[in-house]
Design a binder for these strands. Sequence first.
DNA 1: AATATATACATTGACAGGCGAGGTATATAA
DNA 2: TTATATACCTCGCCTGTCAATGTATATATT
Lengths: 106, 106
Amino acid sequence: MSITSDLIRGHTETIILAQLVFKDSYGYEINKRVQEKTEGQYELKEATLYSAFRRLEQAGYILSYWGDETTGARRRYYTITPLGKMTYENNKKDWQQAKELIDKLI
Amino acid sequence: MSITSDLIRGHTETIILAQLVFKDSYGYEINKRVQEKTEGQYELKEATLYSAFRRLEQAGYILSYWGDETTGARRRYYTITPLGKMTYENNKKDWQQAKELIDKLI
DNA sequence: AATATATACATTGACAGGCGAGGTATATAA
DNA sequence: TTATATACCTCGCCTGTCAATGTATATATT
């Protein structure tokens, strides 16, 4: 695993929410998008990804529904809720703050 | 606890090493320094701090010795080793990289 | 004299998130 | 027929954080 994995620990949920702000999506696609955006420098582990989905849904930040694919593997799509959007915005602010703190400290 | 605690998770060791690069220090002082630098926005929990010291010493990044205080509570001082300095420099680079990745993703 | 506060270190045990390993199923390309 | 890509899911371990608790010294307050 890449050197950065420890440092991104704790951002998984925000990363997922960020993808869902643009459009509904599903696990596999979200992970592919993360890999594209980081040019392969980072990827979500499947176990991490799916356990995060459970937490996010439990918390009311996302909702899920099965896609109506007539071919290929089935997809479970996720939508972000208004509460999820608020949480995402808050998390982004927290990140800006945390970045400054860490920069002061290291 | 402050909102940022989850996001700083994983930086504890680097924060400690950063303090020891300047000068030898001890737990209580390091924590006070962290609080000063962040204007009270962040503090290391004692259990977190002392378990980090154990890990860092185990890994050969720091060495410890008892201070020779003739008054007040005894202090266990820590010194950063050359290996610890290298690790600190690497961690700083990793942080710069992680910051960019996270900014891309959220 | 008694109490509170600051300094200083340390351990225990619970909890939460990350993830390796394993499993299921469909579709296409070699 | 085999491999690869797509797509989802669970179990159980590992690791870092931290609340709670305990010890000891020195000073300030009541």
